[in-house]
C-alpha cells in the first residue's frame, strides 16, 4: 500500500495570542514519503511539525494521523504520539539516565513491553545508528553528534510510523553534521516516512520526495527537489534559496 495516507492536515490555523503562526495549512503525507520543510525563521515550519504530535494545539482545522483524528482527548493524543517519533534540535536526552535507559523507558512505560524485550530493541537501534558501544554512558559523556544519534535511536525504539525532525543538525558543530545526516539518509533508504525541518539543502536534494517552502505561517510552494531548486516559482522562494545557498 504505497498510497496509504499517514498524515492529513486540512485548513490548520494556529495562533499564539494575537500572532498567527499557521495560516490555513493543508498537507498530505503518504506512507514512505520524505518531506523537507524549509523557510526563514519564524515561518512556522517547526510549529507545523509540532502540531502533528500535539506538542502544540491548533485552533482550527483538522489533523489526522494514521487514521486517528487528533482532538483534545487524551486517548487520541496518546495513539498519535505512539505512531509519531520526534527528534529535536537540542537532542533533549534525559541526562540522568544512561543511553540504554533513555531508549528503554518509553517502550516499557508507554508500550508496556517487558524489560528484556525493550533492551533487545534498544540495542538493535543503537547498533543501527552505530553507537552500540556507548550504551552504558550518560548523554553528557557523548559528543553532540552522538547524542543526536541516540535521540534518533530512542525515537525509533517506539517503532513509529512517521519520524519528525526539527532542525536536527542546527545545534551541531559542523564536523558532526554529516554523521547525523548519514543516519537520517539510512533511515530514509529503509523506507521510513519522514518530515524534516532543515536547512541542509544537500540532504533535501538527496533524500526528499517533496520540498515545501513556508513563510509567514503559510505553505508558499512545494515540489520535487529538482524542480524546486532549479526553477522556484515564487519570488519569496527564490529570495530564500538565494540567501541560503549563498552560504553553501
Amino acid at each position: 500500500m504505497q498510497d496509504q495516507i499517514l498524515i492529513e492536515m486540512k485548513g490548520v490555523q494556529k495562533w499564539y495570542g494575537g500572532y498567527q503562526a499557521l495560516r490555513d495549512v493543508d498537507l498530505t503525507v503518504r506512507k514512505g514519503e520524505k518531506i523537507v520543510l524549509c523557510g526563514p525563521s519564524g515561518s512556522g515550519k517547526s510549529t507545523l511539525i509540532r502540531c502533528i504530535n500535539r506538542l502544540e494545539p491548533i485552533q482550527q482545522g483538522s489533523i489526522v494521523v494514521n487514521g486517528h483524528r487528533l482532538d483534545d482527548s487524551i486517548k487520541a493524543i496518546d495513539v498519535v504520539r505512539q505512531d509519531v517519533g520526534m527528534v529535536f534540535q537540542s537532542f533533549n536526552l534525559f541526562p540522568h539516565m544512561t543511553v540504554l535507559q533513555n531508549c528503554m523507558l518509553a517502550p516499557i512505560r508507554a508500550r508496556r513491553i517487558g524489560k528484556a524485550e525493550a533492551e533487545a530493541t534498544a540495542r538493535k537501534y543503537l547498533e543501527r545508528v552505530r553507537i552500540g558501544d556507548q550504551a552504558d554512558k550518560y548523554p553528557a559523556q557523548l559528543s553532540g553528534g552522538q547524542q543526536q544519534r541516540v535521540a534518533i535511536a530512542r525515537a525509533l525504539c517506539m517503532q513509529p510510523k512517521v519520524m519528525l525532525f526539527d532542525e536536527p543538525t542546527s545545534a551541531l558543530d559542523p564536523e558532526m553534521v554529516k554523521e547525523v545526516l548519514d543516519t537520517m539518509i539510512g533511515l530514509a533508504n529503509d523506507g521510513m516516512t519522514m518530515i524534516c525541518v532543515t536547512h541542509e539543502m544537500g540532504f533535501a536534494r538527496q533524500v526528499a520526495d517533496r520540498v515545501i517552502f513556508m513563510a509567514e505561517g503559510q505553505i508558499i510552494e512545494e515540489g520535487a527537489p529538482e524542480a524546486f531548486f532549479r526553477n522556484p516559482k515564487h519570488a519569496r522562494t527564490r529570495q530564500f534559496l538565494g540567501e541560503i545557498l549563498a552560504h553553501h
Binding site: N53, L55, D78, R81, Q82, V84, G85, M86, F88, S90, N92, L93, F94, L105, A106, R109, A110, R111, A151, R154, A155, M158
Partner: peptide, 17 residues
C-alpha cells in the same frame, strides 16, 4: 528544561511517568 517534558510527551509518556 521544557525540552525534557516535550521529549517525554513526544515519546508518548503520560504525566505520571
Amino acid at each position: 528544561p521544557r525540552g525534557q517534558t516535550e521529549a517525554a510527551m513526544a515519546l508518548g509518556l503520560h504525566y505520571s511517568s
